[in-house]
Design a protein around this nucleic acid. Sequence first.
RNA 1: GGGUCUGUAGCUUAGUCAGGUAGAGCACCGGGCUUUUAACCCGGGGGUCGCGGGUUCGAACCCCGUCAGACCCGCCA
Length: 524
Amino acid sequence: MHWADYTAKRLSDEYESQVIASGITPSGEFHIGHLREILTAEMIHRACLDADIKSEYIFIVDSMDPLRRVYSFLSEDYQKYIGFPLVNIPAPNPDGTPNHEGGNYADHFLKPFLEALREIGVHPKVVMNHGTYENGEFAEKIDLAIKHKDQIHDIIEKISGRELPENWFPYNPIGSDGSMDGVEVTRYEKPYVHWKDRHGVEGKSDTRKADGKMPWRVDWAARWGIHSITCEPAGKDHGAAGGSFDTGIPICELLGDKPPGKMVYEWIQLKGSGPMSSSSGNTIGPIEALNLVPPEILRYVIARTKVKKHIDFDTGPSLFETADEYERLVSNPPSGEELNKKKKVARDTITGALRLSQVNRGVDASLSIAGVSFRHLAMLAQIKSNDEDVWNSLNKSQHIDGRPNDALIGRLSRMRNWINSVHFPEDARIKIQEKMDLNTREKLTEKQIQFLLIMSDKLKSCKWSEKEISEKIREATKETEVSPREGYVALYMLILGVDFGPRIASIILELGQDITIEIFSKSL
RNA sequence: GGGUCUGUAGCUUAGUCAGGUAGAGCACCGGGCUUUUAACCCGGGGGUCGCGGGUUCGAACCCCGUCAGACCCGCCA
């Protein structure tokens, strides 16, 4: 059984209807690591719906979280915004300076991420956390938290092993300058928290408004109750012993609610370069990833991996394997009646992964088949600059019959992006030689050189079509009495510098007559 | 220091929660197609399930220990 289906089943044993949640702080550019947070939750949500369990999926944006520090992509102008809720800060310009016309900081980073989510078929109910404060939904929890201040204090200190400051208070009001830093609570008089900020200014915050927020560990526990969340997968940073999940459970209960069960997912790493981090610049954005990787395959990468296993995200060579594995599975799904228990489990797991990988829920996976392997498409995309030529070639090779489907059109356009990016594997790149070097030439026999000379002549008067070029190759092999194989090897050595490759006539055609003849004349 | 997770074929892994003869893909090798030469089809070899104990008629799976790797415990998912 797939992990999402298993979780859905477990949830339905405990709750009648589900609220599955994700939560992310929009403190900077989103990266594909965040996609795991989103997709883990969304797949459980889909699994619930597929099992006729009532379910809702919400994405809580921590727009009230304060700016912690001036990140590397921000200019020093942001110094003055430290401690401000992200929703109250101007969005940065590309050079890192504040753009006062560009909306707020939280929305700025959120917007493109939501677009990427749409592209991979995720349609959450977006909850801006500052909105929840603004409309008073937090007020009751804030009141309870303040009343149980000492107990919460003890829970955090005991479970996390962290020492809280003397003046710790489960509510951080915003001071006169807009920052939550250095604001000291002087007293609480429902619904107002009175304070004195670092400038000595005194004031009060209305707990029914977004005049302040609860600290992270309390905030998270409170929102489980406010939104009746039944499942919220958490990153392993929150899931560590003594982490915010562990303190959240008793705090949530203290505030009168039943906490969701603990579920922790592993991180995605960029192959070979460790965990993703916005500050180190070691990121790949969901949008960048979606430019290269078809959405169903991006989903598949998450769906096929157990939640607790880390994923090495690789936009290099292993993308071929992942994509071809997906293609193979969809076109030839594992089936069979006489399987033993283990094989049945394996089959159900993988078919579950395929089901959950579809961009649109309930749509037949077979519609996402491109009908051609990633490798073959990579080759065609490199030698055919025109999409129509690619479709013609695929028709001729009987990969497709007639017009390409949407999946294939999408694959080709992303394939072109991939090839043009630094991520495309070098050994898959077709490199046209300007001329044959001496080393390569020495590997050829006299006969093969003869063959190339004849070819050179023939190409000069050749009508430039794939058929004609193939015909010339055949003629030349006959005239010089080299085997077809030797002839092809000679051509590959000349044009690509290696002894094998994709269909040479296509490459020659694509190169054009002038360039081809130039390669021949320079080399021979 | 405390904790979590991972360790199965050269590589990626399924199977571990409900113990019952180790399964797949890639790669590799062989054959076919003999020209769509990075395509396609068929076949094959390859695993002390990290290591050591224990429980059991029976352990990749449960328990204890141990080694290795990754990560968390400073709100970075």
